[in-house]
Design a protein around this nucleic acid. Structure first.
Lengths: 159, 159
DNA sequence: GTCAACGCTTACGTAAACGTCAACTTTGCA
DNA sequence: TGCAAAGTTGACGTTTACGTAAGCGTTGAC
């Protein structure tokens, strides 16, 4: 039995899907878009170790909000040149741009949150005057809290 | 000449567009989707004072990231009942939900930013070792900064 | 008289990232 | 051998919020 980590090891589409929680359709889609290029064994796709790495990069790119097109451009850079330096510089640039965009998004979200909280306050105030019984209270929030079983429930409660 | 603020005052589609920086297409679209219902004078749309308020609410909803469908539901609530209390409660609930969603999004963004910064650091480190001349430096950022002529350039620079 | 500005309706186009069939082939195994 | 599981290739559907004509009517200015 070969070492699972030996570079010669290959993967089926579903193995990668299970490992990275993707769907076959997605992998084929990435291939369609030129982000992946697995070998074939007859018709079947055979993913190499390098393909697996590429997939990881794709998913990482997605997590930080790059479009598939952008990801493809980055991947292409790594391929074209024989081990990158200029490419790394370009990746770095791209990443910094994305970071800036994300910071902008955060600002937008913060503004929206401010507006929302103002609206909430106004509504709460008027409801308290007119129909205090209708005010959604802590009990209503337990659902929300239970829905996210992770650790920041306390943080949400304000300490 | 009538007082511009008199409630009887009406607006043409372009007046509202100019005031709120929307396009006629957008207002017609909102109408199509049941968010607006301006009167007609022949074929032409005539927006009342109330329509203007509705439009304001629509745009506010959009700013905080509600979908047109959600906005419509909220607007409908205000219409159905004879001046709301239950509706206010429901709006409040919706707003709070949206606030929670936005906070979640902020977290996602923060995570992406962490991942991005790690990647940037790795790249910078390796580039510094291998080809320090390719390291994008402050000069490259002036473009970015110039691209946003507003006031937080200093904030971006770190104080 | 005629051109520009504004308005109207109808309807197709767009972008992103797949989901969801349909219809087939291949492979393993009991 | 006979069926189910997993693979394949198209190709159309989905969602959101409009953009972008195309083709036509109305009104005011020159």
């Amino acid at each position: 039995m070969a070492d699972l980590r030996r570079p010669e090891r290959t993967f089926t589409i579903r193995q990668l899907c299970n490992e990275f929680k993707a769907t076959p359709r997605a992998l084929r889609f990435y291939e369609d878009k030129g982000l992946l290029n697995p070998a074939r064994e007859g018709l079947n796709r055979v993913y190499s170790h390098k393909d697996r790495v590429r997939l990881q990069l794709i998913l990482r790119g997605k997590r930080v909000g790059l479009s598939l097109t952008e990801i493809r451009e980055l991947l292409d850079l790594y391929d074209e040149n024989d081990e990158g330096a200029a490419q790394m510089a370009r990746s770095l640039k791209k990443f910094r741009e994305r970071a800036n965009a994300l910071e902008q998004q955060r600002e937008d979200i913060d503004n929206a949150l401010i507006e929302l909280r103002e609206a909430c306050n106004r509504l709460e105030k008027r409801l308290a005057e007119i129909r205090p019984d209708l005010l959604p209270r802590a009990a209503d929030y337990e659902q929300v809290l239970r829905a996210r079983l992770d650790g920041h429930a306390e943080a949400m409660l304000g300490k």
